[in-house]
């Protein structure tokens, strides 16, 4: 465990934060689709990609070979999930804001939907940032190579 975390760069932790946000998004999305009145605005496909995003990150960050790409793959799945979610639920916006972008309309929005949307945005942004950051620390060169003696020996 010490070696595991010891080898991780800042990017890993950013992507891990994104994964936590994604997990929160997933939970709220499931609630929205079950008890939150999501109805036809809930997409199982979007949910699947959310799960894939978390699973991909969790799986890939374990192995040295795949770890550098964990954040990127996580961000990619999450982004696809987000697009599918937007496509599924854009009509909800047209219904709620039929009368214009009013404070009253905002206040009447489905609370699960609003929370899900906010979490989605945060997850996507954080995952995109994490994807660009190094996931593993770079290996340090040996001290002998630094002073030129070990090569000669």
């Amino acid at each position: 465990m010490k070696d595991f975390f010891g080898s991780k760069a800042v990017g890993f932790y950013v992507s891990a934060a994104a994964a936590v946000l994604t997990l929160a998004t997933l939970i709220v999305y499931v609630l929205y689709g079950t008890v939150g009145g999501g109805g036809r605005y809930f997409s199982p496909v979007a949910l699947t990609f959310l799960i894939l995003s978390i699973a991909a990150f969790a799986g890939m960050c374990i192995f040295k070979v795949t770890a550098p790409w964990a954040g990127f793959v996580q961000a990619a799945f999450l982004f696809v999930s987000f697009l599918v979610c937007l496509y599924t639920c854009y009509r909800y916006f047209t219904e709620v804001f039929y009368g214009g972008l009013t404070a009253q309309a905002f206040s009447m929005m489905n609370k699960y939907f609003l929370a899900m949307l906010i979490l989605y945005f945060l997850s996507v942004i954080v995952s995109q940032v994490g994807a660009e950051m190094r996931q593993r620390k770079q290996s340090q060169p040996q001290a002998a190579q630094a002073d030129g003696y070990s090569a000669a020996q």
Binding site: G39, Q104, M108
Partner: peptide, 12 residues
Amino acid sequence: LTDMEKTGEADG
């Protein structure tokens, strides 16, 4: 009766 989405205006 339901939490379903508003069917039109925000004050459905």
